[in-house]
């Protein structure tokens, strides 16, 4: 990450919110646990549709109907992930600045979000029961992007 951004990361960590989370013994672990609960529901909502689009599960229902039903849970989970994620970040922003896993995660995240909102949502809305090559490719892309975000996120705690 560019050194120009370091002051911003320092500002985040010194902010009232960053201090508030960091000075508590319980807050970080509890927010982390909520982040993990939202990971589960986000993962479920994403994978349900991607597995269907790959033709690997639930093939007796149209992709579009499943995607529409899952979308509510997908975006609510994303909202919880973003709020808890920002809180966790604020409390240790300077550590994140020097953390390669964080850089990977934060670079992949906008792609995963944009891809899900614009490309995936547009392709996976067909109400036919067939599974086309295009849906398969889009589902693979979705799994690859979200996997990168999640795996890099877990690795923040292991790399330094």
């Amino acid at each position: 990450m560019s050194p120009d951004w370091l002051p911003f990361f320092e500002w985040c960590e010194a902010s009232w919110l960053g201090q508030f989370v960091r000075t508590s013994i319980w807050l970080f672990p509890v927010i982390e646990a909520i982040h993990l609960l939202a990971l589960s529901s986000l993962g479920g909502a994403v994978l349900l549709v991607d597995l269907r689009a790959l033709g690997l599960a639930l093939t007796d229902q149209p992709i579009g109907a499943l995607a529409r039903a899952a979308s509510r849970w997908l975006w609510w989970s994303t909202a919880v992930m973003l709020v808890t994620g920002v809180l966790l970040f604020m409390s240790e922003a300077v550590k994140c600045f020097h953390n390669p896993a964080f850089a990977v995660k934060i670079a992949a995240l906008p792609f995963a979000l944009g891809y899900t909102a614009f490309i995936r949502a547009r392709v996976l809305r067909d109400d036919a029961l067939v599974t086309g090559t295009k849906s398969r490719l889009v589902a693979l892309g979705s799994i690859a992007l979200w996997f990168t975000v999640a795996a890099a996120g877990r690795w923040i705690g292991f790399s330094s």
Binding site: L36, S40, L42, G43, G44, A45, F147, A151, R154, F158
Partner: peptide, 16 residues
Amino acid sequence: SVHVLTLALFAGSAML
């Protein structure tokens, strides 16, 4: 990491 990431499929599908 495998343990945690598999939550997305296990707990995720159970929640649905």
